[in-house]
Nucleic acid binder design. Sequence first.
DNA 1: AATGAACTGAACTGTTCTGTTCAGTTGATG
DNA 2: CATCAACTGAACAGAACAGTTCAGTTCATT
Lengths: 240, 240
Amino acid sequence: MTETTTSVRRPDQLPSQVLHALDAAVKRKPAGRKEDQLLDAAEEIFLSHGYAGASVDDIVLRAGISKATLYKYFHDKESLFSAVIDRRCVQQRERLSALTTNASTEDALIEGGKMAVTFMVSPLAQSVYRTCVAEAARFPHVGHVFYLSAAVAMTKQLSAVFERAEAAGDLVVPDKAFAANQLWQLARSVYFYELMFQVRDNVSQNERNHVVRESLEMFVARYGTESFKPRMAEALAKLS
Amino acid sequence: MTETTTSVRRPDQLPSQVLHALDAAVKRKPAGRKEDQLLDAAEEIFLSHGYAGASVDDIVLRAGISKATLYKYFHDKESLFSAVIDRRCVQQRERLSALTTNASTEDALIEGGKMAVTFMVSPLAQSVYRTCVAEAARFPHVGHVFYLSAAVAMTKQLSAVFERAEAAGDLVVPDKAFAANQLWQLARSVYFYELMFQVRDNVSQNERNHVVRESLEMFVARYGTESFKPRMAEALAKLS
DNA sequence: AATGAACTGAACTGTTCTGTTCAGTTGATG
DNA sequence: CATCAACTGAACAGAACAGTTCAGTTCATT
């Protein structure tokens, strides 16, 4: 069962009469139930078959709804596809915004690096990336939404970390947006592409740590102050 | 005119009688003429529409040949697609192998960086990347071929540069393959992805130089010897 | 019990797709 | 001139496709 996205939640401690009223409200305006089933199914099919390779019949079959219902919710296949990508990108953005804020520079960088790498090599992120790259040429909107959710969101997060680190005398980063992009790119080294091109099918904890360590070592070699470099080296050494 | 792929070559100094015989042999087994027309057309359509979005009818129309002929050369659409990707990847590999070998470390890095960035932002490389990413999940062979042509070829080239630089006391690169990958990733910063996701549609000479400069600055900060760093800085400063 | 909105299932339209078939054309060769 | 292989053009089969339609069902509300 997928959770409803209605703003109405059902607290278990309310009297059953009220519960019925809430149930009624939910069923009156499903606004989520069927639509979420549909979006979930569509996401599965689109992300694994691509836009052209996904058939509307497959989607409604998987969603367990009728084709007529699909076309009540969405005007056509393209709208459905856009909705799927939009929803997933919003979720990606939220997932990336969870960066801790009150740690030391070295811990913030390591935690951020771990999160970035783990995120990148996850099957879902790989699928989303694959689909957005594939369709960005024919659906510019998809490209923009993905770019906003990934690059822009990540740039904002990392820029904040860099600013605090600069205030603390740990880093000197003239162009924070560009540096954020560089760090993100470094985190993609080797394993991201080996997964993307089917050269391997998983990345171990050790391998993830390896990329984090090497990325940060290079990053700090370029942007770290002399006083910070030994502290970073020490923190990286502890990284299994 | 595309060059024939027959093993028979035509040396201009042979008597005309022999030339006619050779011509005959070539025309008897066109092995290239029609097939190249076909591959050229197929490449155009596949790279711009993706595998599922490309129709065989479009391809034969563009190639100016009949459908029956296509199916004489290739057993099915998938074989044709594979052949297109294979051919293009071989050409990519050749394009990437043109790295100069006998320059100073700083010149080799700068020339290599310029070539890498210029290559990455070219419409053709973008299309190939897009198509290979899109189809690697359903055509593992495509993923492998692309990976070999891009990552492996580039790693080999850069590793050679690193080795000479190490011998010259300019760099210290423990894991050359990994470092090559890192440098390649850095060259992808910002503009590659802005193009890929339709956020912009071209990259100026200045922007390309900017990425080259920043990538190499970071790379040398991490792997350069102290004696080499000032030389690299000087060389980068000259980069418009 | 009646109402009405959401939904279903299945048929249907018209298009497009891959892959096959075949009678006939072309053009070089012996 | 006769031959032979490559090729053409057009039709064809069979399947899949997006999107529409509609008679009938479900079910909370009145």
